[in-house]
Nucleic acid binder design. Structure first.
Lengths: 373, 373
DNA sequence: CTGAAAGCGCTAACAG
DNA sequence: CTGTTAGCGCTTTCAG
């Protein structure tokens, strides 16, 4: 293996000069720089990551914790993960993949050992057991998602409450008075997954404001489950003329079942989805939808982290973690990306949802009851 | 940060003793071990990853390269990635997430810098540009997938050729004589993705052997694309009574379209899928399918790698990579998991496909032509 | 069974 | 602008 000393020898300079050429942390004459670069090139030198981490106490690695569970939003998760990896690389960082399995212990392990400098958490629960580790002078961290109490934490997420509100507004604007919500699997709500509950709140609040009826039903994926839920919905509220779906695996079954029961979309019933663009666009009826901007979320999470990391003081010395309590790190005020209502908390960045109208939503049918069950 | 020396002091032993208690590389008296363990516990000691990597030249990190592209098999990819991470942890390794974006350079970077000891590659092309890096005394590597020339490489994959054959056998056994294949997106074949081509070969060969007609059509995902393909298929071969689908995003559209055009599944047409179990089981008609064992693939890839890694000699010294050319590393003969035909090459492990009969396949209709188009 | 000591390859003061 | 030097924290001979 080629070492920095060998490069130095080859270039006829000292080791530190090579190091400084690499880091750019002090001025180097053009001639020297050129010579060093040539030697690096010729010898095929690659700095040893471990040695670097040891000497600088910066590993240039971000840990990304993805849910082990795979009962929802799989494509979104992968897309976020890939976006995180890509964005991190653009800043010279690598990404360590952690599964939710090990829980808080994994966070302690990778940060405590200096393996990772910072962490990004996906699939955050309202009351997430990993958060205490991050709050108490923990490592720089960004959550993709919003916990119940985001104080002292950096979070990035879609404003799901606003997304829910947007769906209701759109449908109410088209004259729909009875709306049914096909939600995530019951387990998702049981776990108090933030985005699901916030969407629901947005839906309910706006429905109440606009005087529309709202019926929410969690729903397992798959055709049979959707069939059951759908039957019960129409049984309970025959007047339902619009659906909001937040469950990728329910989208096609829902459309198939509506079709099969003689309900035309959007003539008889309207459907609005909260899902990634491709799912909405490729559905058997192109769906009016609020997009889940997976790439954007991943990218922003990384960018926040990088900001925090480079904002850290000279560092290098032991006993880091001084002025950290109280406010979230790196919260740039005024950049909270808006959202519904006032900025929820410092350090929280909620992306404003966008509703795209496609073919699945239209005016509420003037008359009711002419549809067979 | 607590260091090994502090632990040693606290326990009243030397630094090397602490190290040996941790590594178990030499006998330690029970009393000493207990004392050291207590100190570690009390001080909350965590060995520094970088220092370890530097001193031992083993990072305990495996790099996993996932495709950047997201035009196929997304859930499978995530499932494999998670399985890899889980299995790696079980062996004391962490996983570094690389995207295909950087290509061969990323492999050189992470292995050349000692960041990763070994690599796992997903989404391998028949003629993959990353392979040369791995062959020439490169790092230990395992491919999930099968390239055109696997010589000198360790590979794990489903035996897609056998999977294709299995589908045809099942359908032919039910009396179907004209089979249509709804394949992956055209781009997948254009890139010469191994699994797609091997499946196709398996389908064609067995169809030829059994005297069945086979029509293959690549297909973009989504409802409209499937509709187009389907129309052309029936136009070209009105006698088609069975479909093999290898494209997750085409499954539901296909079922929806068959239904809409008055073709009952499985009474009028049979459908067999090559896809993950959940997709098959949750489809609007539970699908007879050949499973893609994502977790198993991830797990096996890691296990192979671990075997190779621990089989390495004393190591630690510079200039590794001696006896490597010729045979793939760690190929345990007789453990190639069988497959269709003779073992394809040493170092290649093809998992035997399993076909599960569900509700979507049945006897070929006795008469043809009674179906409207 | 245990210690002492020499690095692993790099960074970052400290000196010019 | 460049060189010298002292570690970073751990592993692993070499000596007992």
């Amino acid at each position: 293996m080629v070492t920095l000393v060998e490069v130095a020898r080859h270039a006829g300079v000292s080791a530190s000069t090579v190091s400084y050429v690499l880091s750019g942390k002090r001025p180097i004459s053009d001639l020297t720089r050129r010579r060093v670069r040539d030697s690096i090139e010729q010898l095929g030198y690659q700095p040893h990551a471990g040695a670097r981490a040891l000497a600088s106490s910066r590993s240039r690695i971000i840990a990304l914790m993805v849910p082990l569970r795979t009962d929802m939003y799989v494509p979104v998760m992968l897309e976020i993960a890939v976006a995180v990896a890509t964005a991190a690389r653009a800043h010279g960082y690598d990404v360590l993949l952690l599964t939710g399995e090990e829980g808080p212990a994994a966070l302690r392990r990778v940060t405590g050992s200096g393996l990772a400098e910072a962490v990004i958490l996906m699939d955050v629960q309202l009351d997430d057991e990993r958060l205490p580790v991050l709050r108490a002078a923990g490592p720089p961290a960004v959550l993709v998602g919003l916990p119940g109490d985001p104080s002292g934490l950096s979070c990035v997420d879609l404003d799901f409450a606003a997304a829910g509100a947007l769906c209701v507004e759109h449908l109410a604007g088209l004259g729909h008075r009875e709306i049914a919500v096909i939600g995530e699997a019951p387990g998702v709500y049981a776990r108090h997954t933030g985005f699901a509950e916030r969407t629901l709140r947005g839906l309910r609040d706006r429905a109440a404001e606009l005087g529309a009826g709202l019926l929410h039903r969690p729903c397992e994926g798959g055709h049979d489950a959707v069939a059951g839920v759908l039957a019960r919905v129409f049984d309970e509220r025959p007047g339902v003329s619009a659906f909001v779906v937040q469950n990728e695996t329910a989208v096609e079954p829902l459309l198939a079942l509506l079709r099969r029961t003689g309900r035309a979309v959007p003539e008889d019933v309207s459907v609005v989805a909260v899902c990634p663009e491709p799912v909405a666009a490729q559905a058997s009826v192109p769906l009016t939808s609020v997009a889940i901007p997976a790439q954007e979320l991943g990218r922003r999470a990384v960018e926040r982290l990088i900001t925090e990391l480079s904002a850290r003081p000279g560092d290098g010395g032991p006993e880091v973690g001084g002025p950290r309590a109280g406010g979230p790190r790196g919260g740039r005020p005024g950049d909270d990306g808006a959202g519904a209502g006032a900025s929820p908390a410092p350090g929280v960045e909620l992306l404003t949802p966008v509703l795209t109208v496609r073919d699945s939503s239209g005016p509420a049918p003037a008359s009711r009851g002419g549809v067979r069950n």
